[in-house]
Every structure is written in structure tokens, then in C-alpha cells.
Design a binder for these strands. Structure first.
Lengths: 341, 341
DNA sequence: CTGAAAGCGCTAACAG
DNA sequence: CTGTTAGCGCTTTCAG
């Protein structure tokens, strides 16, 4: 591995001068600069960032902690963050926790050891203390939360209006004539899940429709729970005419349940979900969805993190950025055939 | 940020001793070890990996270059790699190139500057020289290619049997009675795409069916090209009865084309594709697919890379690992209604 | 404009 | 077992 010293020797200058041409930190005579650049080319030199990082106390690396890249919501989020970060030559180190707190803690530790400049995190559910996050902030590590708010933590967060988005969607279902609307929620340990449930309740309440307990089922945001709870709901004596599912993967499980039970969507039951699915335009049923701007969340979050890192926003109070959702009305919620009689 | 020195002071030992308890590099008396561990806890100390990396010339970071995390094939690949890497405490730095060679080159440069221990790369199409890869290897950087073989490069690669997988799929189509089978290929600059085309030709040849030029269309592995070429094929005077699409995203485009043209799948045209889609069990049509073990490719590739990094396999010739594909027969290729007469 | 030199935080001899 | 010390490759004063 060639070093700055070898470049200096080959170019016949001091290492300070080489450093100056690389970083543009001070003026260098044309003759010397050219010699240095030539040497860099010839020796295929790549300045050692780890040495540089050690010296300047900045690594140019950002950590990103998500639950599972395999969940279709996250790739967009990651891509948004990466695109924002890359503009400033930052690297993104991603990690999956599968929503396990232990992994999240461990990853924080690893990330801190590697001295990332900041971290973007979609927090795992179930931690009301978030000591590892507190500790990291105390140590001066900039952190921006995405999508989910950690309970009882004053921290930068970019998310969406879960309550409003859900309410709007339920209102759409009501406008379609549905009165018997069930919901599969996420884990209520997550504020995100509670907010969506709240949007559901608000919309029903405003329409003067009582909330029925047996039509509220708590899932865990994974496909399997959607499948299981979908089956349960379908076997209720009085089946709901519409079902709102609190995220996309659970909806996939619900679709399997529908198929197995021989219940057709949208003809026999209307369906709508939180989170859009990138491929829904290509398959059937086309699913009505409260679309989150996942790419924008990642992008905006990364931008905010960069600001915090640059200390441009020194001492500013934590920002709560809420991006708008978009209700995408598709066939799954509009093709219901009203039961006659 | 607390340093090893502060820990040493607080514990009343030398920094060498602290280093020894952290890394287990030498025996330390119980009393001292406990004092050190206590200090580490109290000060929330995280050993500075960048300083460590500089010293030991190993960063514990691996780069991964893919074309687009947003393409459903890649999340699995990344996850497999991450899981394999994490077992040895390695970090994964991912990058998207959007298949642009310029970005790939740039990323290689960035990765080398950061002194990653190795890189996993799904090469971008169109580079017959791959100078940046050659240079990196010359400098001693272990590299393992995934999925796509860079032309004219002797290098470790883990991929699948594209020819055999495709042939098997076409044979299935033939067995269903189809004689008029079209194909949408990937960019022929990619060996992967050529191999799949080859599998198609071989299967037809073996069945004594001539290959018709107008039924071979070259796409670019993106949805839009599938849409466009799908439309073209549908408007051929003699429409094929079956269509093989060389990857999943293009198939999504084809499905849109079908819907717009009012051609129903599988009733009016059979469909099969290379690459499985994770969600196809939840939607219609359920798509017949040559499934690649994406997770396994990532996992195996990372394992191989780790071996190369450890130098356990010093001087061994490049490995070509081919993982098996699995033909998943679903309704899109079995529900065709033979034209009578 | 240029070179010399201190030191970022850690590991790995080495001497005791 | 323990402490001391020389760098790893770079940036950044500070003189000149």
C-alpha cells in the first residue's frame, strides 16, 4: 500500500506539500503540484482515510440501523439516505436488527467504536429507556430517528403523519359505504402502531360509528401475523366488509389468508393498508395504500443528520419533521360489491 | 471521547495492560482486569477502531457494490452478506451504482481510501477492461464477484447456472405444449444475460424448434424495457403463446403491458421469468420463476471473501462457485388455455 | 510557498 | 504479569 511518504519521495517534495495538494489546504507551486499529481497517478495512490480520520477526528462514515432490508419499505429509505450522504462523500454503513433490541444495542456499540460521524436509526420496539441511545448522545454522537419515535426521548425525528394518513384512508372506506371496518394494528409498543390505530378510531368516532373490540387485532408488522389475524377475522361470525392493515408486509399475509379462505378481494372484502408496495401496479389486486415517502424520509433524515454533524444547527432543539402521506386509491378498496338485501 | 489513556489512569494501570484486557492478548491479573473493566463501564469507553485499524492494518470493514437496493433481488443478497460478515464482527458498507460504470469506479476508489478489507461486487455492465478492479487486486485487495462475471477477468465469483436454469424453464414451457415462445433478454453486454439467452436457444434447439429472431428482444433489466418490449411483442401479428423474461423487474413491466393490452395471463399468454419475486405468493398472477438463491449467494460470497482476507486460501486459483437455481412452477405458466382449432 | 515535527489512539515488541 | 516506547499514515502548526 503506497503512502504519502512514498509520494513525497517520488515527487521530491515534503509530505506536507503532498497533503496540501491533496486537500487544497494551502497554495502549492504549479511545478510541484504537477509532480505530486503525477506521482499519485503512477503509484495508484489512495490517501489513507483511516489515518486521516484519526487525525481530524471525523471518519466520513454514517451508520444506519433498520429492522430488515428485506422488508420492501426499507430499500427506499436506505437509498434516500445514501443519495443524500454521497453528495458529501459520506459512506453509509447499514445494519439490520430484525427489531431485536439486543442487536440494536450491540450495533450502537460497534458503530461508536468505529467512530461514525452520526447515525440514522429506525428504533426497535420495546425499549422505554433507550439507554444506549442516551449514552451515545451524551458522548456527542449526532443521531436522527427515522419513521419511529423512541418513547420519551427528545430527539430529531423525521416521520410521517400516521394519525392523519390513517384517518384519511378510513374516511375513504367510509365514503365507499363501509360501516364494518376492521383493523390489524402493529405492535402497540410502537408509537407508530398506536398512532395508526388512533387514526382509525378517530375516523370511526367522527362518523358516529362505535369501535368494536373484536375488530381490532394486534399484529407485529410481519407477514405471518397478517396471515394469522386475517384468518381469525374472516372466521368471525359477522365478517367485516372492509379491512385496514397497518403495514405492507402484514397485508401480504392477509392476501394469502384471503386466498386460502376463498374470499375475493375486492369483491367480497375491501382492503387498504399503510405503506405502499412498489410492485402493486403490476399485480392483482392493486392495493389501496397510505403511501409513505420512504425515499424522502431517508433523504431528509440524512440531510438533517449532516447538519447536526456540521454543527451548523448547534444547540437547536430537536426537530420533529413530519412528511405528508399520500392516499393511493386503487381497486382493492373500490371494487367491493355491496351485499344486496 | 474517552481514550485508552484515560482508562489506564482511572484504573491505575498502564495503557498496555488496558489493551491486553480488551484484546485478551496477554494474561492480566484478576485484580487489574476488574479495575480496568470497571473503568470501561464507568466511562462508557469504546475502543477507537480507527486508531486500531491504523495500527493493525485491518479495518474490519467490507464494501459491497450492487446496482440498486431498490431492485427486489438485492436486499436478499445484501442480507446474506451482512449475516455472514457479522459473525466475524465485520461491517458492511453498501453502495448502489445504478449500473453506471463511473460510479463503480468512484466507489472503488472511495473504498480503497477507506481501506476496507475486501469488496463484494456485482459488476456494472459494459466494461471489458475493468481496470479499476485489476488495479485494486494488484494492490492486494481481495475481491469477490457476485452474480455477474466481469468479462475477461480471472476472479472469484459466486453465481448461478443461468444456462441450465433457463433451459429447464423453457423445457417446462415446452412440456406445457408451447411451441411459440418469445424471450426478453437482459443487456447482452452482460454475460449473465447472454447465458440466459443461450439456455433459451439450447432448449428450443433440442426440441427441434427454430429460434425466431423477432421473438428475441433485448431489454436492460429494468421495468420500463419490459413494458416497452412486452407491448411490441403483443402487437406482433403472430403473438407468441408463451414469454420468458430474463429478470424480475422487466417482468413487472410486462405485466403492466399485458394489462394495458387486455391480454390475460395465464389464460391468453403464459409467462415465466428468471429471478423469483418475494411477494408473488400474495398476488396474481402467481409467477413461475427460476429462483436464484440470492441470500445464499450473498452469504457464500461473503464467506469466500472472508477466507481470502484471512489468507487461508493463499495463492489458490480463483473459485467459480455456481449455486443451483430452483424452478418454481406457478399459475402463470400452467393456466394457459390452448387455442382451439 | 515549503519542510520539519508533534501527535491523533492504539498495538506490539521489549525489558524488567 | 506489567510498563515503556516506537510507530501506523496522516494533518497541522510553526519557522523559515
Amino acid at each position: 500500500m503506497t503512502t504519502i511518504k512514498e509520494i513525497a519521495q517520488r515527487a521530491g517534495v515534503s509530505i506536507g506539500t503532498v497533503s496540501n495538494v491533496i486537500n487544497g489546504t494551502a497554495a502549492v507551486s504549479d511545478r510541484r503540484r504537477e509532480r505530486v499529481q503525477a506521482a499519485i497517478q503512477e503509484l495508484d495512490y489512495h490517501p489513507n482515510q483511516v489515518a486521516r480520520s484519526l487525525k481530524i477526528r471525523r471518519t466520513g462514515m454514517v451508520g444506519m440501523i433498520i429492522s430488515d432490508i428485506t422488508n420492501p419499505f426499507f430499500p427506499q429509505l436506505v437509498r434516500g439516505a445514501e443519495d443524500a450522504l454521497l453528495k458529501q462523500q459520506n459512506l453509509l454503513i447499514t445494519f439490520n436488527t430484525d427489531d431485536r433490541l439486543e442487536r440494536e444495542r450491540h450495533i450502537f456499540s460497534v458503530l461508536r467504536a468505529h467512530r461514525v460521524d452520526g447515525v440514522l436509526v429506525v428504533v426497535a420496539p420495546g425499549d422505554s429507556q433507550a439507554v444506549h441511545i442516551q449514552d451515545a448522545r451524551k458522548a456527542g454522537l449526532p443521531i436522527v430517528c427515522l419513521d419511529r419515535v423512541p418513547p420519551g426521548l427528545e430527539i430529531d425525528i423525521v416521520s410521517v403523519d400516521n394519525v392523519g394518513g390513517t384517518r384519511q384512508c378510513i374516511e375513504h372506506l367510509l365514503a365507499q359505504g363501509h360501516r364494518e371496518i376492521a383493523i390489524i394494528t402493529g405492535p402497540v409498543a410502537l408509537e407508530t402502531a398506536r398512532e395508526r390505530l388512533q387514526g382509525y378510531s378517530e375516523a370511526l368516532g367522527q362518523a358516529g360509528i362505535p369501535v368494536r373490540k373484536e375488530w381490532i387485532r394486534e399484529g407485529d408488522f410481519r407477514a405471518d401475523s397478517g396471515y394469522r389475524l386475517g384468518k381469525e377475522l374472516l372466521s368471525t361470525p359477522t365478517r367485516p366488509t372492509a379491512l385496514f392493515v397497518s403495514n405492507n408486509t402484514m397485508t401480504l399475509g392477509v392476501l394469502r389468508a384471503l386466498e386460502e379462505c376463498g374470499v375475493r378481494c375486492p369483491e367480497e372484502i375491501a382492503l387498504a393498508m399503510f405503506d405502499d408496495l412498489p410492485l402493486t401496479d403490476s399485480f392483482h389486486p392493486h392495493l389501496t395504500a397510505v403511501a409513505q415517502p420512504a425515499y424522502a424520509i431517508g433523504y431528509r433524515g440524512a440531510e438533517l443528520l449532516l447538519e447536526r454533524i456540521e454543527k451548523k444547527s448547534e444547540g437547536q432543539p430537536p426537530l420533529k419533521i413530519q412528511l405528508p402521506t399520500e392516499l393511493k386509491i386503487r381497486e382493492s378498496s373500490t371494487g367491493y360489491l355491496r351485499r344486496s338485501g
